[in-house]
Nucleic acid binder design. Structure first.
Length: 951
RNA sequence: GCUCGAGUGGUGGAAUUGGUAGACACGUUGGACUUAAAAUCCAAUGGCCAUUGUGGCCGUGCGGGUUCAAGUCCCGCCUCGAGUACCA
């Protein structure tokens, strides 16, 4: 009887679906385990073999945990809002919902084929109104909250209103807009309702603000940095301008410190934690205010009566942020970003031409250019001077493109002796470099070693260390009112508006230009039908095309403009939410996905708590994975979620790359040369479809000619009668003809082979090339496994049989726990080879083996389980746990330098018992001893311990 | 430039805490079974040298170091990959 994988797989997929084998209960006597794969965007291209890698790993672990007696939640869904469906709609007019539904259908077929143990009864789709109702609900909740820095948590906005009524905002320590003015309780009482709303907007966790965006007038849309090449749009080559637009923002910066602290409590990969840490970018230092010295031009400067020079900077001073306030006496110039707003105001007439030319030159360079090219030093002198806060000495003010407008204050105090970039700048422009470090030679380079800093030539700081001098400087600055200590983050608030159609509508309408939330009882606010998915002619987002998109004063969506008094209807928000909105809380929604009274029942989340294992790509490090942590912390603060971090453990699966194949066409003739014949030839490589290549890189020439008829008359120059292709590792893509679909593999080898092979390819986290040829190895393993079960009987297993089994159990279990699936597949292969050689047919050995294999090859395992006479699905079987014994155990270590006779007590596997042997050992040398067993063994003894059995 | 990761046979990759480097698999070569092919099974397979018996030398990107012992630890380089917002 052959191993008929197609038949077996169809049978069990059907069985699992009919018996709802993998549906999880929201309460159970068993301990809970939540294993989650990142849900996919259902693209039109379907899955290729690279996509399921993480799903397979997660599924293996989920099945393993079920066998271990856990109540496992293993759901799947779709992140189904997104740009491709919208662009397809723009081209064809087909509604994105239709495109999306078709893509999802295809995804589901492909996923089902692979035998995942997903609980499909919990499927979510972010574009489903029943789902995005709760995305909108979270948005309203954010709007209804402010961040109390003293309590370090989000609180209802009503608390803040109460505070304002009582004592104004003087004592309120909140995350809020920088330009928030002070007001008293009396002021608040006199504010109009509109003023109050405006003021509260400065505190809410989601708020409207003018954000600078890359606006492309021709496309009528905002572009990401990635979509801009050399100052014009990647698509169409239209000009792009920086423009301020009113956008919804998320006050993620309020959570900067907690997002940082939380990283220490979760088991995520270090590189990913590093990426988030760097993204949040905490640095300790000080804000320092430098007065601009009056000269003939300074009359033009505005003067201001503001009292707090730090909150609302005077226009005749320059604020800088520095991490090295201790080097304040080393300042010999200042550098502003060329885009800094003060540049135009302070530049002297004599320097005007040079500065303007420099700014123009800078504007043409992309940030990437500015970054890649650190060797070219450029800048210009503005002609203006600032005053040193302590020495009162004049400091020349320069502009330079090594200073970025977007970080800190867009200005730096330059300390050339302590910072290499400042040093290089000073050398290049021949600016004085004062030395403020005791005993340090700065004639060649700057000295930036904080730990070994002793300050000199610095007035009241002389002789102090970095730490002491920093504290002292900040104290002195605070005394003269020209600075204060400050923790700065590079993290910035996230823009939350998109000028798109295919996204969640904001539950927002406007009264007198001020945003109002729709009553939650009326959610979801569903997307309107539009004629066109492009921006309107007046440049409004696509929702502006809707015939009806307004709200009446009773809080009901207007269905017919004609019936309602125009005075009581209000416009709805035209922007939609970004892609990451729907993915920022989906993991919680899976816990209670059909609840339409609440985002999820408290009992449900109290049971499931959080994700135990999350598997997905590292490309989400500073996007989805940061925003989700932010939302989760917010939901935690507001009592909606019981855990502050949503995922305890996270694994980044690596990418599976394609192995492209090339043929080599001679440039001057119609000959195509095999790979080994290229010496001295002038050839151009041409992609060949990977399905035309066999395991030994030989091309099927006739099939190639058929596939690319333009080469049907070409002469193929063979080596040893074969055409050998060249190979190159590239990303899998249609254009490189290296895409391999899981469907093809499943048809030829079965889903179990594919699952095993994807795991066998290499470590989960590593990126590795796909090569279909290698799948025969794991496929023949399955066939051998099948054969083992053909002659099953009830004989008592031999010691050898049991040893093989126990060895396998121990290794496989340890490997699964360590997510080292590749080595466990090898262990299976060895096991089956050994049992085959031993002619083992014992049920006592093969029954546990079937369970052991089942996470990897579930269909095969189910079939074998049935063959063993079990009526229940293997999904309910318990993982075999045996007391595994150490193969060899030394009871005592001996010193490396020992010379002479020693007795070793060895504990042997299984039934072999214990044995004592005597051996003569030499200092520093390995010793071989012979064991008297049923089969004699050699044991290598090394100084200090016993290592291994041989033979 | 910075941050993180990785370099082991023809290929993908093994190698608990430093302890017989190359497990397992692909490929290749030879053999068995076949009219033949496929499938299956058996054997060999890091390099070099020697030899017909067992043997010797060199080998984990490069150069040093620690150690009885280094793929593994330390120092200095090189190459490749990923991320990136010159973060003051």
């Amino acid at each position: 009887m052959d191993y008929n994988f197609n038949e077996i797989e169809d049978k069990w997929q059907k069985y699992w679906a009919e018996n709802r084998t993998f549906e999880a209960l929201n309460d159970s006597e068993k301990p809970k385990y939540y294993a989650l794969s990142m849900f996919p965007y259902p693209s039109g291209a379907g899955l290729h073999v690279g996509h399921p890698l993480g799903y397979i790993a997660c599924d293996i672990y989920a099945r393993y945990k079920r066998h271990k007696g856990f109540n496992v939640l293993h759901p799947m869904g779709y992140d189904s809002f997104g740009l491709p469906a919208e662009q397809y709609a723009i081209q064809t007019g087909q509604h994105p919902a239709i495109t999306t539904a078709a893509n999802i259908k295809r995804y589901r077929e492909q996923l089902d084929q692979l035998g995942f143990s997903f609980d499909w009864s919990r499927e979510v789709r972010t574009s489903d109104p029943n789902y995005y109702k709760w995305t909108q609900w979270v948005f309203i909740k954010l709007f209804d909250s402010w961040y109390n820095n003293d309590a370090a948590r989000a609180e209802p906005i009503q608390h803040l209103v109460t505070l304002f009524e009582k004592e104004g905002n003087a004592k309120v320590n909140a995350a809020c807009d920088d330009d928030t003015p002070d007001f008293s309780a009396a002021d608040w009482g006199q504010f109009s309702d509109t003023d109050k709303q405006r003021m509260l907007l400065k505190y809410r966790l989601t708020y409207l603000a003018d954000a600078e965006v890359n606006w492309c007038p021709a496309l009528g849309t905002v572009l990401a940095n990635d979509e801009i090449v050399n100052g014009v749009s990647e698509r169409g080559g239209h000009p792009v301008i920086r423009k301020k637009m009113t956008q919804w923002m998320m006050r993620i910066t309020a959570y900067a410190q907690r997002l940082l602290d939380g990283l220490e409590t979760i088991d995520w990969p270090q590189p990913l934690k590093d990426a988030q840490t760097n993204w949040i970018g905490r640095s300790e230092g000080a804000f320092i205010s430098f007065k601009i010295i009056s000269n003939s031009d300074v009359g033009a400067l505005e003067t201001s009566n503001a009292t707090d020079t730090l909150q609302t900077p005077l226009s005749n001073s320059i604020d800088v942020f520095t991490t090295r306030p201790d080097t304040i006496f080393g300042v010999s110039f200042m550098t502003l970003a060329p885009e800094h707003e003060l540049v135009a105001k302070i530049t002297t007439p004599t320097q005007k031409a040079e500065v303007t030319a420099y700014i123009e030159a800078t504007a043409k360079r992309s940030e990437r250019d500015r970054m890649a090219d650190v060797k070219t030093i450029s800048g210009a002198f503005t002609g203006a001077y600032a005053e040193h806060p302590f020495t009162k000495a004049p400091i020349p003010i320069w502009i330079g493109d090594y200073v970025l407008a977007s970080y800190g204050t867009g200005a730096v105090m330059a300390v050339p002796c302590g910072d290499q970039r400042d040093y290089d700048f000073a050398k290049h422009f021949d600016i004085h470099i004062p030395n403020i470090f005791e005993g340090i030679d700065i004639s060649k380079e700057a000295f930036a070693d904080k730990a070994n800093t002793v300050i000199a030539n610095s007035g009241f700081l002389n002789g102090l260390s970095y730490k002491e001098a920093t504290t002292k400087t900040i104290a002195e600055l605070e005394m003269i009112g020209q600075g204060k200590g400050k923790v700065n983050y590079r993290l910035r608030d996230a823009v939350f508006s998109r000028q798109r159609y295919w996204g969640e509508p904001f539950p927002v309408y406007y009264v007198n230009g001020l945003p109002q939330m729709i009553d939650a009882a009326h959610l979801p606010l569903e997307l309107p039908e539009v004629e066109k998915y492009l921006p309107t002619e007046t440049g409004e987002p696509p929702l502006g095309n809707a015939a009806i998109w307004a709200w009446d004063s009773l809080g009901k969506k207007v269905v017919d403009n004609g019936e309602v008094d125009n005075m009581t209807i209000f416009p709805l928000e035209l922007n939609t939410m970004p892609g990451w909105a729907g993915s920022s809380q989906y993991f919680n929604r899976y816990m209670d996905p059909h609840n339409d009274q609440a985002i999820y029942a408290q009992e449900a989340i109290n049971y499931w708590q959080d994700v135990d294992l999350y598997i997905g790509g590292s490309e989400h490090a500073t996007g989805h994975l940061l925003y989700s942590r932010f939302w989760q912390k917010f939901l935690f603060d507001r009592g909606v979620a019981p855990k502050e971090e949503f995922a305890q453990k996270l694994i980044n699966q690596g990418m599976i790359t394609g192995t492209s194949a090339y043929v080599y066409k001679d440039l001057d003739s119609n000959q195509i040369f095999s790979k080994g014949l290229l010496e001295g030839k002038n050839v151009i490589p041409i992609h060949a479809d990977v399905s035309l290549i066999d395991a030994s890189d030989q091309l099927n020439v006739e099939a190639f000619k058929k596939w690319q008829p333009e080469y049907k008359d070409a002469e193929f120059i063979l080596e040893d009668g074969k055409y050998i292709v060249g190979r190159e590792i590239e990303k899998m893509s249609k254009s490189k003809y290296n895409v391999v679909n899981p469907d093809q593999i499943c048809e030829a080898y079965g889903a179990d082979s594919l699952r095993l092979y994807e795991m066998f390819l290499g470590p989960l986290e590593q990126s590795k090339p796909w090569n279909t040829a290698g799948i025969t190895g794991v496929h023949s393993f399955l066939k051998k496994l099948w054969k083992l079960y053909l002659n099953i009987d009830d004989t008592v297993p031999t010691g050898e049989n049991l040893k093989t089994l126990h060895k396998t159990i121990k290794k496989v279990e340890a490997d699964i726990e360590a997510f080292s699936f590749n080595t466990s597949v090898s262990t299976f292969m060895i096991c089956v080879n050994e049992l085959t050689a031993q002619k083992c047919a014992s049920r006592a050995v093969l029954e546990p083996l079937a369970i052991l294999v089942s996470p990897y090859a579930p269909h095969m395992a189910e079939e074998l389980w049935e063959k063993l006479g079990h009526s229940e699905s293997i999904a309910y079987a318990t993982f075999p746990v045996f007391e595994t014994q150490y193969l060899v155990e030394s009871t005592k270590e001996y010193p490396i330098s020992f010379n002479g006779k020693l007795r070793f007590k060895l504990e042997l596997p299984l039934t072999m018992g214990k044995e004592e042997i005597e051996a003569t050992v030499m200092a520093h040398e390995k010793t071989q001893v012979q064991l008297q067993g049923r089969t004699p063994k050699k044991v290598i003894v090394v100084p200090g311990k016993i290592v291994n059995i041989v033979g």
